[in-house]
Design a binder for these strands. Structure first.
Lengths: 220, 220
DNA sequence: AACAAAAATGAGTGATTACTCACTATAATT
DNA sequence: AATTATAGTGAGTAATCACTCATTTTTGTT
């Protein structure tokens, strides 16, 4: 099992990941994503992955010591990528510059729209993450670390800032407010792309209504 | 694969299920629930289930033709049980009796509190349902059928009724309103019992805040 | 063209899998 | 008490699993 501290360091250099990758390795990754998403990690066999990738089974184990290492190489980068907006240097700074501050609503709208596009473009991968997180402590811990150390502190500052400004209600605790906002936003995307992907969604309407719903629920 | 129509009929007589069950069979079910929840259906072996149940492996296959049949015998009853409030004859009737009508808020509060207790008492089982629904079309279809035929129609009537009464905002469509309410309620329970079960929750506060949040988000 | 390094191969391996079946133990019925 | 029916057993089976490794193919350097 990987040391969480090392894992975070590992994650931060994901930009290097794409470099020394062979064409066959890329095919393996693509096939693995598809099959893991279709039948789950435990039910996916390395032989089937190799077959779909058009590669000998041994080739998989040239690049990845174990099947689990293949899973982690796919899942791990998503941790940072999903939380990416909160890693941006400019993100928080912009919020607190009064002359640029367009209020919590606009910030929230930008954030949700941005993550909505991200989810839309990474459905199979996020399916894998959601599924396998339940059974792999390494993945859980890595996400927990990123969330508590990177996402949560910035989110807290945001909510506190707008609560002090009187823009957000203060009869909800900061933690509760964050939970409700994230639940609503994530819930929307899970419903939209995983639970009912075939429903004839009016995406623009649902997005705007979701934002309105959050706004009326947490604004003073 | 089971015919969905038959499955629903099967489900409606769950009260009979508990009858002709042997002690060893009960041990098998209990062990299966534990192990399915711990490591997932695909990673759970029948030999391990038999071992934990204190039973010979062959005994499992006396009672269940396949491992999957064992899973379905565990998961299927939860479909009706989770939607149980919507099956109650009195449920809707009470709502529309004006002299008993205490408003959407009280109805919602009762409903969420009730389902909150249910989830609390069935965490491992619901974990299995959430996990395995993704990979077993029979489970998906059964839930879809119960939801669209039993839950959704009643929910729709409720929302329409209170929208007409002017209690609920009508700039959200009925479907969107339902989605937001269910998302928020389910999201709360998933966060509370599955994502962060060890967080020191103030359950009463979170429940009340969640209801307030919904109320402010969908009331006019 | 010759060589070395890296990438890819696929038959082979022991372990584990869901499931079978001939058999025994227990319970119910006469 | 005898007979039948049901419940339980556990060694056995073919299939599949993740993974290995000796060998071949491809790539890069001179």
């Amino acid at each position: 099992m990987m040391d969480p501290q090392k894992l975070l360091q590992e994650l931060l250099k994901i930009s290097d990941d794409d470099k020394d990758i062979t064409p066959k390795q890329a095919k393996i990754i693509q096939a693995a994503i598809e099959i893991f998403a279709e039948k789950g990690y435990a039910s996916a066999s390395t032989s089937e992955i190799a077959k779909r990738a058009g590669v000998a089974e041994g080739t998989i184990f040239r690049h990845y010591k174990t099947k689990k290492e293949l899973l982690l190489s796919i899942v791990s980068p998503m941790i940072i990528k999903f939380a990416a907006p909160f890693f941006a240097e400019t993100f928080i700074r912009q919020v607190f510059k009064d002359h640029e501050d367009k209020g919590f609503e606009e910030l929230l709208r930008k954030l949700i729209q941005n993550r909505y596009e991200f989810v839309k473009n990474n459905v199979p991968l996020l399916k894998i993450v959601l599924q396998e997180m339940a059974f792999h402590p390494e993945i859980q811990q890595a996400y927990k670390q990123v969330f508590t150390e990177k996402v949560l502190p910035k989110f807290k500052k945001m909510v506190e800032y707008y609560q002090d400004k009187g823009e957000l209600r203060n009869d909800f605790s900061v933690d509760t407010t964050i939970r409700l906002v994230i639940n609503t936003a994530v819930g929307f995307m899970v419903t939209r792309f995983i639970v009912m992907p075939d429903y004839p969604w009016d995406d623009e309407k649902e997005l705007e209504n979701t934002i309105q719903y959050i706004k009326d629920g947490i604004f003073s």
